[in-house]
Simulated assay, not measured.
Amino acid sequence: MKTLFRAAALGALLVTAGAASASAQTVLTAADTQFKATTLNLSAYGETRVAPDMATITLGVNVESPTAAEAMKANALRMNQVIAALKKAGIESRDIQTSGLNLNPQYVYEQNQPPKLTGYQAANQVTVRVRDLAKLGQAVDATVNAGANTIHGISFGLSDPEGAENAARREAVKALEAKAALYAQATGYKIVRLVSLNESGGYSPEPPRPVMMMAMKRESADSTPIEGGELRVRIDVSATFEAAR
């Protein structure tokens, strides 16, 4: 009985090993077939340029006073006027965000003398999103007239970049297909199918551009000219194509 049991067990092991070997052979055959296939690995990009429809600008108030309390109080008074001017110019509360608040002592340094405290500087900055570019220049002027004396940067953007991104995607795919057809023709092949497609890139807001500080009230009735220009939206794609003769 023991001999029969051992024979049966050995037979089961042989069957299992045979099935595993056949399965491994199938995997190797599939991998070998894929390895032998002729593929083209290519990349391309599509780009579209569109006019921005919104802008973000950072502005603020710097005040110097003999004491810290006086500096903060004077700064708060002027900053409240600046925020009120923004709202009066049509900027919503959700588009006004405090982005910096600082209080620093001011010193005079003389040779061979200890630093001498001369007062305190209070600085308050807000980042403002302007959704109507036609109001941008007037909004900036209103803040300067209300007491803002620093402007640190401006950037332009898109409230809904999907349309521009899709246009760039179509251009990227066209460029990719044209490149694949060219390589296939040059090497005597034809494209059989698209194996994989990957995307990178897309819309990202541009970094703030430096703008000149505006510390004096404007005397002219004309608003500050600010040009939005164009934004570049780029989509990069890469793909693997199978080719055959």
Rank of each mutant, 00 (worst) to 15 (best):
K2P: 00
F5K: 05
F5S: 11
A7M: 12
L14V: 10
T16K: 04
T16V: 09
A24I: 02
T26L: 07
V27A: 09
V27I: 05
L28T: 13
A30R: 14
T33N: 14
A37T: 05
A37K: 14
T39I: 08
N41T: 13
N41I: 10
A44M: 04
Y45K: 10
G46E: 01
A51V: 07
A51Q: 12
P52W: 03
I57C: 01
T58E: 09
L59F: 13
N62G: 06
E64P: 00
M79R: 10
K88Q: 13
K88S: 11
I91Y: 08
I91N: 12
S93N: 09
Q97L: 13
T98R: 15
Q106M: 06
N112V: 09
K116R: 10
Q121S: 11
R129E: 11
D132A: 10
A134E: 11
Q138F: 04
T143N: 03
A148F: 05
T150L: 08
H152R: 13
G153K: 07
S159I: 15
E162C: 00
E162G: 01
G163M: 05
G163L: 14
N166F: 13
A175S: 13
A175H: 11
I191Q: 09
L194S: 10
S196N: 12
S196L: 08
N198H: 12
E199K: 06
G202P: 02
E206N: 13
P208E: 14
V211N: 02
A221K: 04
A221V: 14
S223P: 04
G228I: 01
G228S: 13
R232Y: 01
R232C: 04
F241A: 01
F241I: 06
F241C: 03
A243H: 06
A244N: 14
